[in-house]
Design a protein around this nucleic acid. Structure first.
Lengths: 222, 222
DNA sequence: GCTTTTTCAGTGACAAAATCACACTTTGAT
DNA sequence: ATCAAAGTGTGATTTTGTCACTGAAAAAGC
Protein backbone atom coordinates (compact mmCIF):
# COMPACT_ATOMS: atom_id res chain seq x y z
CA UNK A 1 0.00 0.00 0.00
CA UNK A 2 0.84 3.69 -0.25
CA UNK A 3 2.76 2.98 -3.41
CA UNK A 4 4.48 6.06 -4.68
CA UNK A 5 4.67 7.41 -1.16
CA UNK A 6 8.45 7.55 -0.84
CA UNK A 7 9.06 9.25 -4.19
CA UNK A 8 6.30 11.75 -3.59
CA UNK A 9 7.59 12.76 -0.20
CA UNK A 10 11.19 12.96 -1.26
CA UNK A 11 10.09 15.22 -4.07
CA UNK A 12 7.79 17.47 -2.08
CA UNK A 13 9.70 17.74 1.19
CA UNK A 14 13.27 19.03 0.96
CA UNK A 15 13.77 18.01 4.59
CA UNK A 16 12.95 14.38 3.85
CA UNK A 17 16.57 13.29 3.52
CA UNK A 18 17.40 15.02 6.81
CA UNK A 19 15.04 12.86 8.81
CA UNK A 20 16.15 9.78 10.69
CA UNK A 21 15.11 6.34 9.50
CA UNK A 22 12.72 6.14 12.43
CA UNK A 23 11.11 9.50 11.73
CA UNK A 24 10.53 8.54 8.13
CA UNK A 25 9.02 5.23 9.14
CA UNK A 26 6.80 6.98 11.63
CA UNK A 27 5.50 9.44 9.08
CA UNK A 28 4.90 6.67 6.58
CA UNK A 29 2.94 4.62 9.10
CA UNK A 30 0.67 7.50 10.08
CA UNK A 31 0.14 9.06 6.71
CA UNK A 32 -3.18 8.27 5.14
CA UNK A 33 -3.97 8.15 1.46
CA UNK A 34 -7.35 9.40 0.33
CA UNK A 35 -9.28 9.36 -2.88
CA UNK A 36 -11.24 12.57 -3.08
CA UNK A 37 -13.66 12.71 -5.97
CA UNK A 38 -14.19 15.93 -7.84
CA UNK A 39 -16.16 18.52 -5.84
CA UNK A 40 -15.15 17.11 -2.46
CA UNK A 41 -14.95 19.96 0.03
CA UNK A 42 -12.68 20.25 3.03
CA UNK A 43 -12.83 22.97 5.62
CA UNK A 44 -9.90 24.25 7.66
CA UNK A 45 -10.00 26.54 10.62
CA UNK A 46 -11.82 26.95 13.87
CA UNK A 47 -9.69 24.22 15.43
CA UNK A 48 -10.47 21.71 12.71
CA UNK A 49 -7.59 20.79 10.47
CA UNK A 50 -6.47 17.46 9.17
CA UNK A 51 -2.74 18.00 8.94
CA UNK A 52 -0.28 18.57 6.15
CA UNK A 53 -1.60 17.46 2.81
CA UNK A 54 0.11 16.61 -0.43
CA UNK A 55 -1.73 16.47 -3.69
CA UNK A 56 -0.44 13.27 -5.26
CA UNK A 57 -2.81 13.56 -8.15
CA UNK A 58 -5.39 16.06 -9.34
CA UNK A 59 -6.08 19.73 -8.76
CA UNK A 60 -7.72 21.61 -5.91
CA UNK A 61 -8.84 25.16 -5.29
CA UNK A 62 -8.34 26.93 -1.96
CA UNK A 63 -10.69 29.79 -1.19
CA UNK A 64 -12.36 31.90 1.46
CA UNK A 65 -16.11 32.00 1.88
CA UNK A 66 -18.29 35.00 2.58
CA UNK A 67 -21.09 34.94 5.14
CA UNK A 68 -23.39 35.56 2.19
CA UNK A 69 -22.34 32.38 0.41
CA UNK A 70 -19.94 33.71 -2.21
CA UNK A 71 -16.33 32.66 -2.35
CA UNK A 72 -13.01 33.93 -3.64
CA UNK A 73 -10.12 31.81 -4.89
CA UNK A 74 -6.84 32.26 -3.05
CA UNK A 75 -4.73 29.78 -4.98
CA UNK A 76 -4.74 26.34 -6.53
CA UNK A 77 -2.84 23.22 -5.56
CA UNK A 78 -1.43 21.08 -8.34
CA UNK A 79 0.28 17.71 -8.34
CA UNK A 80 3.09 17.60 -5.82
CA UNK A 81 1.93 20.73 -4.04
CA UNK A 82 1.74 20.79 -0.27
CA UNK A 83 -1.14 22.38 1.56
CA UNK A 84 0.85 23.69 4.48
CA UNK A 85 -1.89 26.01 5.67
CA UNK A 86 -4.12 23.06 6.42
CA UNK A 87 -1.70 22.22 9.21
CA UNK A 88 -0.86 25.71 10.30
CA UNK A 89 -3.64 25.65 12.85
CA UNK A 90 -1.21 23.74 15.03
CA UNK A 91 0.57 27.06 15.47
CA UNK A 92 -0.38 29.63 18.04
CA UNK A 93 -1.49 32.82 16.43
CA UNK A 94 -2.63 31.17 13.24
CA UNK A 95 -6.36 31.57 13.11
CA UNK A 96 -7.77 31.56 9.62
CA UNK A 97 -10.71 29.88 7.93
CA UNK A 98 -10.17 28.31 4.56
CA UNK A 99 -11.99 25.91 2.29
CA UNK A 100 -10.65 23.58 -0.33
CA UNK A 101 -12.51 21.97 -3.18
CA UNK A 102 -11.24 19.33 -5.57
CA UNK A 103 -11.49 20.48 -9.16
CA UNK A 104 -10.73 16.97 -10.42
CA UNK A 105 -10.65 13.55 -8.77
CA UNK A 106 -7.69 13.69 -6.41
CA UNK A 107 -5.36 11.44 -4.50
CA UNK A 108 -4.23 13.12 -1.32
CA UNK A 109 -1.73 12.04 1.32
CA UNK A 110 -2.36 13.47 4.77
CA UNK A 111 0.24 13.58 7.51
CA UNK A 112 -1.84 13.98 10.67
CA UNK A 113 -1.41 17.23 12.54
CA UNK A 114 0.04 15.36 15.53
CA UNK A 115 2.69 13.55 13.49
CA UNK A 116 3.73 16.73 11.73
CA UNK A 117 3.85 18.61 15.00
CA UNK A 118 6.22 15.97 16.35
CA UNK A 119 8.49 16.34 13.34
CA UNK A 120 8.29 20.10 13.64
CA UNK A 121 9.36 20.00 17.28
CA UNK A 122 12.19 17.53 16.65
CA UNK A 123 13.73 18.89 13.51
CA UNK A 124 15.16 22.28 12.69
CA UNK A 125 14.93 21.44 9.02
CA UNK A 126 11.19 20.89 9.33
CA UNK A 127 10.81 24.18 11.19
CA UNK A 128 12.65 25.96 8.43
CA UNK A 129 10.68 24.25 5.70
CA UNK A 130 7.38 25.11 7.40
CA UNK A 131 8.47 28.69 7.83
CA UNK A 132 9.42 29.08 4.22
CA UNK A 133 6.23 27.53 2.96
CA UNK A 134 4.12 29.79 5.14
CA UNK A 135 6.15 32.82 4.12
CA UNK A 136 5.65 31.91 0.51
CA UNK A 137 1.91 31.68 0.96
CA UNK A 138 2.01 34.96 2.86
CA UNK A 139 3.68 36.57 -0.13
CA UNK A 140 1.10 35.08 -2.47
CA UNK A 141 -1.74 36.46 -0.42
CA UNK A 142 -0.14 39.87 -0.20
CA UNK A 143 0.21 39.89 -3.96
CA UNK A 144 -3.44 38.97 -4.30
CA UNK A 145 -4.38 41.68 -1.85
CA UNK A 146 -2.56 44.18 -4.00
CA UNK A 147 -4.42 43.01 -7.08
CA UNK A 148 -7.74 43.36 -5.35
CA UNK A 149 -7.30 46.79 -3.95
CA UNK A 150 -5.23 48.40 -6.68
CA UNK A 151 -6.40 47.01 -9.99
CA UNK A 152 -9.66 47.01 -11.86
CA UNK A 153 -11.86 44.07 -12.70
CA UNK A 154 -10.81 43.83 -16.34
CA UNK A 155 -7.18 43.32 -15.46
CA UNK A 156 -8.01 40.76 -12.79
CA UNK A 157 -10.15 38.80 -15.24
CA UNK A 158 -7.35 38.95 -17.80
CA UNK A 159 -4.94 37.73 -15.15
CA UNK A 160 -7.22 34.87 -14.18
CA UNK A 161 -7.48 33.84 -17.81
CA UNK A 162 -3.72 33.81 -18.24
CA UNK A 163 -3.28 31.81 -15.06
CA UNK A 164 -5.67 29.12 -16.28
CA UNK A 165 -3.84 29.08 -19.55
CA UNK A 166 -0.60 28.55 -17.68
CA UNK A 167 -2.03 25.74 -15.58
CA UNK A 168 -3.20 23.50 -18.37
CA UNK A 169 -0.83 24.65 -21.03
CA UNK A 170 -3.27 25.22 -23.86
CA UNK A 171 -5.20 28.13 -25.26
CA UNK A 172 -8.59 26.48 -25.09
CA UNK A 173 -9.81 26.66 -21.51
CA UNK A 174 -12.71 24.60 -20.23
CA UNK A 175 -13.87 27.06 -17.67
CA UNK A 176 -17.11 28.90 -17.02
CA UNK A 177 -17.69 32.57 -16.40
CA UNK A 178 -18.60 31.61 -12.86
CA UNK A 179 -15.19 30.06 -12.22
CA UNK A 180 -13.46 33.16 -13.53
CA UNK A 181 -15.65 35.33 -11.36
CA UNK A 182 -14.55 33.49 -8.21
CA UNK A 183 -10.92 33.74 -9.30
CA UNK A 184 -11.14 37.43 -10.06
CA UNK A 185 -13.29 38.17 -7.01
CA UNK A 186 -16.22 39.64 -8.85
CA UNK A 187 -19.72 38.77 -10.00
CA UNK A 188 -20.51 36.39 -12.82
CA UNK A 189 -22.43 39.00 -14.82
CA UNK A 190 -19.48 41.33 -14.70
CA UNK A 191 -17.22 38.62 -16.09
CA UNK A 192 -19.70 37.96 -18.90
CA UNK A 193 -19.67 41.63 -19.88
CA UNK A 194 -15.90 41.90 -19.71
CA UNK A 195 -15.36 38.73 -21.71
CA UNK A 196 -17.66 40.02 -24.38
CA UNK A 197 -15.54 43.15 -24.52
CA UNK A 198 -12.42 40.98 -24.80
CA UNK A 199 -14.08 39.11 -27.64
CA UNK A 200 -14.90 42.32 -29.45
CA UNK A 201 -11.28 43.29 -29.09
CA UNK A 202 -10.22 39.99 -30.63
CA UNK A 203 -8.51 38.74 -27.48
CA UNK A 204 -10.64 35.66 -26.89
CA UNK A 205 -13.26 33.50 -28.53
CA UNK A 206 -16.24 32.42 -26.45
CA UNK A 207 -18.34 29.28 -26.56
CA UNK A 208 -20.45 27.69 -23.89
CA UNK A 209 -18.21 26.35 -21.13
CA UNK A 210 -15.10 27.17 -23.12
CA UNK A 211 -12.87 30.17 -23.68
CA UNK A 212 -10.19 30.28 -26.31
CA UNK A 213 -7.32 32.67 -25.73
CA UNK A 214 -6.41 34.25 -29.06
CA UNK A 215 -4.05 36.99 -27.93
CA UNK A 216 -2.28 36.23 -24.66
CA UNK A 217 0.07 39.16 -25.06
CA UNK A 218 -2.89 41.48 -25.50
CA UNK A 219 -4.47 40.17 -22.32
CA UNK A 220 -1.21 40.62 -20.48
CA UNK A 221 -1.16 44.32 -21.30
CA UNK A 222 -4.48 45.01 -19.55
CA UNK B 1 23.58 54.19 26.41
CA UNK B 2 20.68 52.06 25.23
CA UNK B 3 19.07 52.52 28.58
CA UNK B 4 15.86 50.52 28.84
CA UNK B 5 17.19 48.05 26.35
CA UNK B 6 17.21 44.98 28.58
CA UNK B 7 13.70 45.49 29.99
CA UNK B 8 12.30 46.20 26.54
CA UNK B 9 13.78 43.09 25.00
CA UNK B 10 12.82 40.84 27.88
CA UNK B 11 9.29 42.12 27.55
CA UNK B 12 8.99 41.87 23.76
CA UNK B 13 10.91 38.67 23.10
CA UNK B 14 9.70 35.57 24.93
CA UNK B 15 12.87 33.78 23.78
CA UNK B 16 15.12 36.31 25.50
CA UNK B 17 15.62 34.23 28.63
CA UNK B 18 16.50 31.21 26.51
CA UNK B 19 19.49 32.87 24.94
CA UNK B 20 23.02 32.39 26.20
CA UNK B 21 24.83 35.22 27.92
CA UNK B 22 26.97 35.62 24.82
CA UNK B 23 24.04 35.77 22.46
CA UNK B 24 22.38 38.45 24.52
CA UNK B 25 25.57 40.46 24.67
CA UNK B 26 25.97 40.13 20.94
CA UNK B 27 22.47 41.36 20.24
CA UNK B 28 22.90 44.26 22.61
CA UNK B 29 26.14 45.30 20.99
CA UNK B 30 24.70 45.30 17.49
CA UNK B 31 21.31 46.74 18.20
CA UNK B 32 20.93 50.35 17.27
CA UNK B 33 18.61 52.85 18.84
CA UNK B 34 16.99 55.45 16.58
CA UNK B 35 14.93 58.52 17.10
CA UNK B 36 12.45 58.72 14.27
CA UNK B 37 10.47 61.94 14.18
CA UNK B 38 6.83 61.91 13.20
CA UNK B 39 6.27 61.26 9.47
CA UNK B 40 9.58 59.40 9.01
CA UNK B 41 9.10 56.80 6.33
CA UNK B 42 10.81 53.42 6.02
CA UNK B 43 10.50 51.08 3.10
CA UNK B 44 10.83 47.30 3.26
CA UNK B 45 11.11 44.91 0.40
CA UNK B 46 13.04 44.44 -2.78
CA UNK B 47 16.02 43.21 -0.82
CA UNK B 48 16.14 46.27 1.42
CA UNK B 49 15.26 45.65 5.02
CA UNK B 50 16.86 46.86 8.16
CA UNK B 51 16.18 43.97 10.49
CA UNK B 52 13.85 43.28 13.35
CA UNK B 53 12.48 46.44 14.89
CA UNK B 54 10.92 47.15 18.23
CA UNK B 55 8.89 50.25 18.87
CA UNK B 56 10.20 51.44 22.21
CA UNK B 57 8.10 54.55 22.09
CA UNK B 58 5.52 56.01 19.74
CA UNK B 59 3.19 54.66 17.11
CA UNK B 60 3.71 53.65 13.50
CA UNK B 61 1.51 52.67 10.61
CA UNK B 62 2.40 49.87 8.19
CA UNK B 63 0.84 50.02 4.74
CA UNK B 64 1.07 49.04 1.10
CA UNK B 65 1.37 51.59 -1.65
CA UNK B 66 -0.34 51.59 -5.02
CA UNK B 67 1.47 52.40 -8.24
CA UNK B 68 -0.86 55.40 -8.45
CA UNK B 69 0.33 56.82 -5.15
CA UNK B 70 -2.49 55.82 -2.80
CA UNK B 71 -1.91 53.61 0.19
CA UNK B 72 -3.80 51.25 2.43
CA UNK B 73 -3.14 50.62 6.10
CA UNK B 74 -2.35 47.03 7.03
CA UNK B 75 -1.83 47.47 10.76
CA UNK B 76 -0.30 49.72 13.38
CA UNK B 77 2.63 49.14 15.69
CA UNK B 78 2.34 50.40 19.25
CA UNK B 79 4.82 50.56 22.10
CA UNK B 80 6.50 47.23 22.63
CA UNK B 81 5.37 45.85 19.29
CA UNK B 82 7.85 44.07 17.08
CA UNK B 83 7.95 44.63 13.36
CA UNK B 84 8.87 41.11 12.40
CA UNK B 85 8.00 41.56 8.74
CA UNK B 86 10.76 44.09 8.38
CA UNK B 87 13.17 41.21 8.91
CA UNK B 88 11.26 38.56 7.05
CA UNK B 89 13.06 39.43 3.84
CA UNK B 90 15.88 37.30 5.19
CA UNK B 91 13.67 34.32 4.44
CA UNK B 92 13.45 32.65 1.10
CA UNK B 93 10.01 32.92 -0.36
CA UNK B 94 9.18 36.11 1.46
CA UNK B 95 8.89 38.77 -1.15
CA UNK B 96 6.63 41.62 -0.18
CA UNK B 97 6.86 45.39 -0.33
CA UNK B 98 5.76 47.36 2.70
CA UNK B 99 6.08 50.89 3.96
CA UNK B 100 6.04 52.20 7.48
CA UNK B 101 5.40 55.72 8.66
CA UNK B 102 5.73 57.09 12.17
CA UNK B 103 2.48 58.61 13.37
CA UNK B 104 4.25 60.17 16.35
CA UNK B 105 7.89 60.73 17.24
CA UNK B 106 9.29 57.26 17.83
CA UNK B 107 12.19 55.51 19.48
CA UNK B 108 13.03 52.34 17.64
CA UNK B 109 15.52 49.60 18.39
CA UNK B 110 16.78 47.73 15.35
CA UNK B 111 18.46 44.34 15.51
CA UNK B 112 20.30 44.12 12.19
CA UNK B 113 19.12 41.46 9.79
CA UNK B 114 22.44 39.66 10.06
CA UNK B 115 22.37 39.46 13.85
CA UNK B 116 18.82 38.24 13.89
CA UNK B 117 19.57 35.69 11.21
CA UNK B 118 22.37 34.33 13.36
CA UNK B 119 20.05 34.00 16.34
CA UNK B 120 17.44 32.40 14.12
CA UNK B 121 19.90 29.80 12.90
CA UNK B 122 21.25 29.05 16.35
CA UNK B 123 18.12 28.91 18.43
CA UNK B 124 15.00 26.80 18.08
CA UNK B 125 13.20 29.21 20.38
CA UNK B 126 13.91 32.09 18.01
CA UNK B 127 12.69 30.02 15.06
CA UNK B 128 9.49 29.29 16.89
CA UNK B 129 9.00 32.87 17.94
CA UNK B 130 9.57 34.13 14.40
CA UNK B 131 7.15 31.58 13.05
CA UNK B 132 4.43 32.53 15.47
CA UNK B 133 4.83 36.22 14.84
CA UNK B 134 4.64 35.72 11.10
CA UNK B 135 1.63 33.43 11.47
CA UNK B 136 -0.07 36.04 13.57
CA UNK B 137 0.50 38.70 10.95
CA UNK B 138 -0.68 36.28 8.31
CA UNK B 139 -3.91 35.86 10.23
CA UNK B 140 -4.30 39.60 10.56
CA UNK B 141 -3.88 40.11 6.84
CA UNK B 142 -6.32 37.33 6.04
CA UNK B 143 -8.85 38.99 8.30
CA UNK B 144 -8.28 42.28 6.53
CA UNK B 145 -8.64 40.59 3.18
CA UNK B 146 -12.00 39.26 4.28
CA UNK B 147 -13.12 42.71 5.32
CA UNK B 148 -12.13 44.17 1.99
CA UNK B 149 -13.76 41.65 -0.25
CA UNK B 150 -16.84 40.82 1.76
CA UNK B 151 -17.99 43.96 3.49
CA UNK B 152 -19.14 47.36 2.34
CA UNK B 153 -17.44 50.68 2.91
CA UNK B 154 -19.73 51.81 5.70
CA UNK B 155 -18.86 48.84 7.88
CA UNK B 156 -15.15 49.22 7.18
CA UNK B 157 -15.27 52.88 8.15
CA UNK B 158 -17.18 52.00 11.30
CA UNK B 159 -14.57 49.34 12.05
CA UNK B 160 -11.73 51.79 11.52
CA UNK B 161 -13.39 54.26 13.87
CA UNK B 162 -13.76 51.65 16.58
CA UNK B 163 -10.17 50.55 16.17
CA UNK B 164 -8.90 54.10 16.66
CA UNK B 165 -11.13 54.38 19.67
CA UNK B 166 -9.57 51.21 21.04
CA UNK B 167 -6.03 52.44 20.42
CA UNK B 168 -6.21 55.69 22.35
CA UNK B 169 -8.93 54.73 24.76
CA UNK B 170 -11.16 57.75 24.42
CA UNK B 171 -14.22 58.68 22.39
CA UNK B 172 -12.77 61.85 20.93
CA UNK B 173 -10.48 60.89 18.08
CA UNK B 174 -7.99 63.29 16.56
CA UNK B 175 -8.05 61.84 13.09
CA UNK B 176 -8.88 63.19 9.68
CA UNK B 177 -11.17 61.77 7.05
CA UNK B 178 -8.07 61.08 5.03
CA UNK B 179 -6.60 58.84 7.72
CA UNK B 180 -9.83 56.90 7.97
CA UNK B 181 -9.92 56.54 4.21
CA UNK B 182 -6.50 54.89 4.17
CA UNK B 183 -7.50 52.60 7.01
CA UNK B 184 -10.74 51.60 5.37
CA UNK B 185 -9.21 51.35 1.93
CA UNK B 186 -11.44 53.89 0.23
CA UNK B 187 -11.43 57.48 -0.97
CA UNK B 188 -11.52 60.51 1.29
CA UNK B 189 -14.72 61.86 -0.26
CA UNK B 190 -16.47 58.58 0.40
CA UNK B 191 -15.49 58.72 4.05
CA UNK B 192 -16.81 62.27 4.28
CA UNK B 193 -20.18 61.17 2.93
CA UNK B 194 -20.39 58.14 5.19
CA UNK B 195 -19.38 60.07 8.27
CA UNK B 196 -22.06 62.63 7.56
CA UNK B 197 -24.54 59.78 7.39
CA UNK B 198 -23.21 58.49 10.71
CA UNK B 199 -23.65 61.96 12.16
CA UNK B 200 -27.23 62.13 10.93
CA UNK B 201 -27.84 58.79 12.60
CA UNK B 202 -26.44 60.18 15.85
CA UNK B 203 -23.48 57.81 15.90
CA UNK B 204 -20.71 60.42 15.79
CA UNK B 205 -20.12 64.14 16.09
CA UNK B 206 -17.83 65.82 13.57
CA UNK B 207 -15.50 68.76 13.88
CA UNK B 208 -12.44 69.67 11.89
CA UNK B 209 -9.68 67.15 12.54
CA UNK B 210 -11.74 65.46 15.22
CA UNK B 211 -14.43 62.82 15.42
CA UNK B 212 -16.35 62.06 18.55
CA UNK B 213 -17.83 58.59 18.87
CA UNK B 214 -21.26 58.92 20.47
CA UNK B 215 -22.61 55.42 20.00
CA UNK B 216 -19.92 52.76 19.77
CA UNK B 217 -22.43 49.94 20.00
CA UNK B 218 -24.35 51.40 17.10
CA UNK B 219 -21.20 51.57 15.00
CA UNK B 220 -20.40 47.99 15.90
CA UNK B 221 -23.69 46.81 14.45
CA UNK B 222 -22.94 48.12 10.95
C1' DG C 1 -0.69 91.79 14.77
C1' DC C 2 -1.89 90.25 9.75
C1' DT C 3 -1.12 87.85 5.39
C1' DT C 4 -0.06 83.59 2.97
C1' DT C 5 0.06 78.82 2.65
C1' DT C 6 -1.30 74.40 3.88
C1' DT C 7 -4.48 71.20 5.57
C1' DC C 8 -9.07 69.59 5.98
C1' DA C 9 -13.80 69.12 4.71
C1' DG C 10 -17.77 69.39 1.53
C1' DT C 11 -20.17 68.85 -2.96
C1' DG C 12 -21.91 67.82 -7.70
C1' DA C 13 -21.19 65.32 -11.84
C1' DC C 14 -19.80 61.30 -13.77
C1' DA C 15 -17.72 56.47 -14.37
C1' DA C 16 -16.98 51.85 -12.77
C1' DA C 17 -18.58 48.01 -10.59
C1' DA C 18 -21.88 45.33 -7.73
C1' DT C 19 -26.44 43.73 -7.21
C1' DC C 20 -31.00 42.34 -8.55
C1' DA C 21 -34.24 40.30 -11.45
C1' DC C 22 -35.00 38.17 -15.02
C1' DA C 23 -34.91 35.45 -19.88
C1' DC C 24 -32.86 32.29 -22.94
C1' DT C 25 -30.02 28.41 -24.49
C1' DT C 26 -27.58 24.25 -24.24
C1' DT C 27 -26.66 19.93 -22.04
C1' DG C 28 -27.65 15.86 -19.61
C1' DA C 29 -30.74 12.87 -17.10
C1' DT C 30 -35.00 10.22 -16.50
C1' DA D 1 -39.42 13.49 -25.39
C1' DT D 2 -39.60 16.00 -21.41
C1' DC D 3 -37.59 18.10 -17.61
C1' DA D 4 -34.08 19.93 -14.74
C1' DA D 5 -29.73 21.91 -14.29
C1' DA D 6 -26.00 24.61 -15.79
C1' DG D 7 -24.27 28.31 -18.37
C1' DT D 8 -24.90 32.67 -20.50
C1' DG D 9 -26.94 37.36 -21.75
C1' DT D 10 -29.18 41.88 -20.53
C1' DG D 11 -31.50 45.89 -18.45
C1' DA D 12 -32.34 48.56 -14.30
C1' DT D 13 -30.75 50.15 -9.97
C1' DT D 14 -27.49 51.03 -6.18
C1' DT D 15 -23.11 51.49 -4.38
C1' DT D 16 -18.62 52.98 -4.70
C1' DG D 17 -14.75 55.35 -6.90
C1' DT D 18 -12.97 59.33 -9.50
C1' DC D 19 -12.60 64.07 -10.98
C1' DA D 20 -12.85 68.80 -10.49
C1' DC D 21 -13.66 71.93 -7.88
C1' DT D 22 -14.96 75.27 -3.49
C1' DG D 23 -14.54 77.24 0.92
C1' DA D 24 -13.20 77.07 5.86
C1' DA D 25 -9.95 76.50 9.45
C1' DA D 26 -5.43 76.13 11.16
C1' DA D 27 -0.42 76.87 10.81
C1' DA D 28 3.50 79.31 9.26
C1' DG D 29 5.88 83.41 7.82
C1' DC D 30 6.45 88.31 8.12
Amino acid sequence: MNEGFEEMFKESFPFWTELTEEQRRNVQMNTVRNLCPKKTRLHFGGGECAGVQIIAQGRARVFITSPGGGDITLFRLLEGDVSILSAACMLNGMDIELDMEMETDCIIYTIPKKSYRKLYDESGAVKEYTMEMISEKFSDIMWLFNQFVFSNVASRVAGALLEHRGINGKDVLNITHDTLARDAGTAREVVTRILKQFQNDGLVKLTRGKIEVLDAAGLGKI
